[in-house]
Design a protein around this nucleic acid. Sequence first.
DNA 1: AAGCCGACTGAGAACGATTTCATTCATGCC
DNA 2: GGCATGAATGAAATCGTTCTCAGTCGGCTT
Lengths: 344, 344
Amino acid sequence: MTTSIKDVARAAGVSPATVSRALGKGPVSEALRAQVLEAVRATGYRPNLAARRLRSQESGTIGLVLADIGNPFFTGVARAVEAAAYEAGLRVLLCNTDEDPAREAAYLALMQEERVAGLILAPTRATAEGLAEAPPAMPVVLIDRPGPPGLFDSVLLDNAGASAALVDYLVAQGYRRIAGLFGQTSGTGVERAEGYRAAMARHGLAPALRFVLPQVEAAEAGFAALCQQGRPEAMITSNSLLLMGLLRAARGAGLRIPADLALAGFDNEPWTGLVEPGITVIEQPLEAIGRQAMALLLERLRTPSAPVRKVMLSGRAILRGSTASAPPRPQSSTKTPPPSSFTL
Amino acid sequence: MTTSIKDVARAAGVSPATVSRALGKGPVSEALRAQVLEAVRATGYRPNLAARRLRSQESGTIGLVLADIGNPFFTGVARAVEAAAYEAGLRVLLCNTDEDPAREAAYLALMQEERVAGLILAPTRATAEGLAEAPPAMPVVLIDRPGPPGLFDSVLLDNAGASAALVDYLVAQGYRRIAGLFGQTSGTGVERAEGYRAAMARHGLAPALRFVLPQVEAAEAGFAALCQQGRPEAMITSNSLLLMGLLRAARGAGLRIPADLALAGFDNEPWTGLVEPGITVIEQPLEAIGRQAMALLLERLRTPSAPVRKVMLSGRAILRGSTASAPPRPQSSTKTPPPSSFTL
DNA sequence: AAGCCGACTGAGAACGATTTCATTCATGCC
DNA sequence: GGCATGAATGAAATCGTTCTCAGTCGGCTT
C-alpha cells in the first residue's frame, strides 16, 4: 500500500486538490504550500504517474525506436535525443528492434498504448514501406532512414552524396576498380548504394556491388563474392559492421591495406582510428541528428499542420591510411599521409 | 479523442466489462469474444496502459538504470535483460545516468513514480553508498558494481580475481614492474584495484596504481603520471575507455607494444582484437550477467522474503599479443603467439 | 456602506481501464 | 418439479490524480 495524495492531504490538513496545486502550478498561499511540502516529506509521497497521465491525458513522453542499440551510431543519436528531450521536459521511451520488422510493429503498437506524444523512428525498409498505409496515430520523425516521401518529417544524412564523395576521393587517389558492399535491411544502404552507382557512372567506371545483411559474417561472405571475378582495388561499404567484416576478411586473405586493397566506409567508430592503417570513413553528426530530430518533433507537436520537413545533414570525410596510395600510378609513396578531413 | 473501451463495447453491443474480459482472461462465450475482437478491429482500439496500470496497480515493467549506454558492456547486458524480461512478459524502462549521481537519483525517483515492479541497477559509488540509508521501495538487483553488503541481490564479476589473474599472467610472462590505472567512479574499479594490489603483494612486487575518471583523456593523463618515476614494463586497467586512452598515450609516446610496454584490461570489445598487436583482456559474460540479474529479480518478486543472494560470475581471459614477451628475460621471441584464452 | 472583484480553497466529477458484486439463465440433482 | 449450482454477463465501484465549479473571505470601488 503506497501513500497517495489523500494521505498527504490528511497529513497537511488540506484537501487533495490543494496538494495537487501545491505540487503543480495552481495558486496556493505560501503558508499552505510549505505545509504541503512538509507533509510530502514526512509521508515520503511520490506521485503516481499512471494516475497523472490518465487524468491529464498526456504522457510527457516520446518514443525512440531504434534498429540496433549496439551500434554506436544509434547510441550516439539516442544520447542526443535524450538530452534534448530532457531539456524540453519530456521523457524518452527507448526501444530496440534489432532490425526485426515484427518487433518493430510490436513496439509501434506499444507506443500507441503508452500514448506517447510523438515518435522518433529509424525504420527498417519493411516498416518504412508499411508506414504509408498504416500511419501511427502520433507525430513521427524519421531518422537515418528514409520513409515514404513527403509523409513524415525526417532528418537524414546526405547518403548518396556521402558515398559519391567516397568514390570521388578514391578515384582521385588513383583507384579504378572500386567495389561496394551495402546493408540490405535499411533504406540507408540503398541510398548509399545509389550514390555509389551514380558516382561510378559519372567516372565512367563499372560498378560492382552487393547487398547483404548488416552482420560481420555476412560481410566476410560478401567479400568473397566481390572478389569472385578478379579482386577490386578498393571497397567501400555502408555500415561499420560490414566495414569490420571486410577488414577481417582482407586480413584473413593476407592482403595489405591499402597496397592490395583500399577500404572506406561509414561511421567514425573508435576502432577505425586505432587499427593500422586507420580506415577512411564518413563521420555522421550524431549529436546534430538527434537534436534536429527532437527539434522537428517539438515543432510538429506545437503546429501539427505545418508542412512536412526533410532535413539533410552532411557528413565529414575522415581520411586515413586505408585509402592512401593508388596501385596503378607508380607513385612509391608508401608513407601514409597524416589524417585529415573535409566536410562534404 | 482516442477510442476507449466504451466505444468498443458500444460497437460490439456488450458492456465494457465484457470487452475487458474478452481481451483479458475472464470467462466469455466464444460468440461474444469474436464480436468483441471484430469491434476492436473495426474501431482500431488500443488499450490505455495508464488506465490499466492505475486500476490493476501493477506496471508490468522493470527499470534498468545503467551508468553508460555508450559502453558496449552495458549495451550487451541491456540486451540480455530485455530479452529475459520479454520472455517473462515484462517491459524494460531503460535509463542512462552517464555516471552522474544526480541523474541517478532523479531516475530512481522516477522509477518509484512509474511504480516499476523492480529495478536492475549499476550504481555509481556515490549512489551505492546512499542505497543503505534510503533503499528504494521496490526490489533491487545490483549488477556489475557492489553495493552495501548483504542488503541487495547482486550479480558481479569476480573483479578481484580477474585482475589478480591478469597480474599473475603478466608475472608468468616475465613482467615485474606492472602499473595499474583504475576508474574512480565505480565500485568495480575499486575491486579490480584491490585484486591488483593483492596479487602484486603476493608476488612480492611493489604496486603503482592510480585512480582516474573513466575517460580517454583522463587515461592519457594517468599514463603520464604512472610514467613519472620510470616507465613500467606493463600496465593493466579496469575499463575499456581507459584501455583505449593508454593505447593512444603509448603510441603517442612512440612505445612499441609489447616490447616497450605490455597492456591488458577489461572487456573484449571489437577493437581490442583488431589493433596490432591485439590487446589481452578479460571478457565478461554479458549475456549471463543480464539473464542472471533478471532471474534474481523474478525470484525476488515471487518470494520477497528470500535471503539475499550474491552471484559471482567468472570472466574469461583472452590472451593476445599485447602481453606476449617479457623484456627482462632475454627471450627474443618477438613473434606474437596465436590468441588463446582461459577461464578464470 | 453595499457591492464587487480577485485570490484562495474544497467538493466532486472525470480520465479509462479492471474487478467485485449482483443478476440472469440454463442445467443437474434428488 | 423444485431447488441448488455454476457460468456468463452487466452495473457500478475503484485506482490516484487533475480540473472544473462553486463557495468563502478580505479588500477595494463608488
